[in-house]
Nucleic acid binder design. Structure first.
Lengths: 342, 342
DNA sequence: CTGAAAGCGCTTACAG
DNA sequence: CTGAAAGCGCTTACAG
């Protein structure tokens, strides 16, 4: 027989230590308004009881009373990337200094993604950073902020409104990349995109739109058979580029919505005997560290600094603020980073 | 002036709709014991009030009363991988069907990792899956399970004890990989490991120990300068292998603790003009999908099926169980997967 | 210095 | 069919 699981409460500790629950709470939290903390002898008795029964504070009780969860979230579009990993790490370091926890919310496009919004709506967390391309309704963001959730949102369209907005200017940077290819004389330019990208709301499909826009400006018809939804799968990207190169009229350049797929494009070209950039120019989007490793190194678009400390600091500033802070615009501009592959 | 953020409560809704908070709760939860739900007219009034003020249930209140958080966690060692992403996705799908949420807890090795344990200890979540190599004290796992947390733990050493254990038998599989290289005649075998791996508790350092053990069994002295802590960084792995190949006596084979670093070893060899596997045999550990894409395809060690549905199903079975379930052992064996690179 | 008591927002057995 | 009331575990202003 497994005995029914029992979590001891502060009442159990109080009984055991012969004190009130108030004293238990004071000892455990180390808080006591302005007053002096309980004397050492009492403290010892309480701590002994805590150790004996293995007491752990109950989050639900504490957070109901304190009106805060001491937890922050990082929401990002799945799959994870070196950038989301890096941000998670920096958030954890800053949070740990304050005794807070961090949870990651990888959003997939399915109904399951919608379920994750509950974590913000129902106040499992006190604040969150939203990386670009999370499928979240902008109106909802403002509502969440108005209800007191601390929010730092990466978005190029949204205006701050009780939450902070980090501008990356991704559209300009992506267009620069395509311009770079056109300026080099390329006319048959393929695009490796996210599956379903052309059905996404405007801000999320910025990469595909940038591609189309620049081609159109230069009077280059965007051949539909050069747009392939393979950027989220390395095997698919590799296979797609091999297929492109076997065509009668292969493209001379590729823009990929992800650096990962761009790297596979480089390998596909190499394995096909096509020189990069001579036979096929390749540009990625995202600037992941791996792009520096390959030969030729990857031309891409993204932030230069692998660092989110300003944004993380701002989140905690917002969390610490006594009164709600007005929304602020921060810059973390994407740039065209020309290396060897294009 | 930003007005102080206010979240409406069920009392506000009740007042507005002219009903009791009990009725509000019944309408919102759709529950009513065995009894009939409130009539349509009442329901409408409540729902209108909910919409008007943008009411969202408060997690702390609900979970304190219900004694459950309706949230489960996935804990895994940072950085994320295709496997952790896949598991997160499968957990989210299964959780969404039940109206539960999923949070990811990427554990880094720092103090920040320790802070994440609070999420389990203080009952932010009802259950969790722990992927291998999370730096969590085994004793603590049993304590958490005894307090009613539903736990499915990937571990080759731990015995089930109120939680389920998934056995991968990673040691055997890793030794097979090294044996495979020795059998092919290799004697100078380098190892790309995790930084700090030789200071980890036994179960976590299984890869390094497997490498050393097999070499020793065959009387091959493991040269310390062939063990490099670069497996978690693609740029570092690439640079390290280039350096290895420039040595007077370069290794003829490489075992990497991660497939990612193994793939970079392959590129480093190619870029150095060394044939793989002819000049340098390369074996990874982990079996990520990318290993199928490269040329030559990657010989590695890992689970064959990119699927966690059995483990996810077990977690939810445990969550749904009326009485605590005894611990069970599940198998998800790692295997040596011989492809082209070794 | 310590404890009794109120109350955070919710759910639910129970009385009416 | 509906509502008053208790109580989940905690914290904290307040009285003693």
């Amino acid at each position: 027989m497994t005995e029914p699981p029992e979590r001891p409460t502060q009442r159990d500790i109080a009984r055991r230590a012969g004190v009130s629950t108030a004293t238990v709470s004071y000892v455990l939290s180390g808080r006591r308004g302005g007053a002096k903390p309980p004397p050492e002898e009492t403290r010892q008795r309480v701590m002994r009881a805590v150790a004996e029964v293995g007491y752990q504070v109950d989050h639900a009780g504490r957070s109901l009373r304190r009106r805060r969860s001491d937890l922050v979230a990082l929401m990002y579009p799945a799959p994870s990337s070196p950038w989301s990993d890096r941000l998670a790490e920096q958030m954890q370091e800053a949070a740990a200094e304050r005794g807070l926890g961090v949870v990651a919310l990888p959003m997939s496009d399915s109904a399951a993604g919608e379920a994750l919004l509950r974590v913000l709506r129902e106040r499992y967390v006190d604040g969150a950073v939203l990386l670009p391309d999370c499928p979240v309704d902008p109106d909802e963001i403002a509502v969440l902020a108005r209800q007191g959730l601390s929010l730092v949102v990466f978005d190029d369209d949204l205006d701050p409104d009780g939450f902070d907005v980090v501008r990356q200017d991704r559209g300009r940077a992506c267009r620069e990349a395509v311009e770079h290819l056109v300026a080099a004389g390329h006319r048959r330019i393929a695009y490796l995109g996210h599956p379903g990208e052309d059905r996404w709301r405007s801000a999320r499909s910025v990469k595909l739109r940038s591609y189309r826009q620049v081609l159109q400006q230069h009077g280059i018809g965007a051949a539909p058979d050069l747009v392939l939804p393979v950027a989220d799968s390395r095997p698919d990207a590799y296979a797609a580029v091999r297929e492109l190169l076997r065509r009668a009229e292969p493209p001379t350049a590729v823009v990929s919505a992800t650096d990962r797929a761009a790297i596979d494009a480089v390998w596909a070209a190499r394995d096909h005997g096509t020189a990069v950039p001579g036979g096929l120019a390749v540009t990625g989007i995202g600037n992941i560290p791996e792009g520096l490793v390959i030969k030729p190194s990857l031309t891409t678009v993204g932030a230069r600094e692998f660092d989110f400390s300003a944004q993380v600091a701002r989140l905690f500033e917002r969390l610490d603020a006594a009164a709600p802070l007005p929304g602020e615009v921060m810059a973390a501009r994407w740039e065209l980073i020309v290396r060897e592959s294009a």
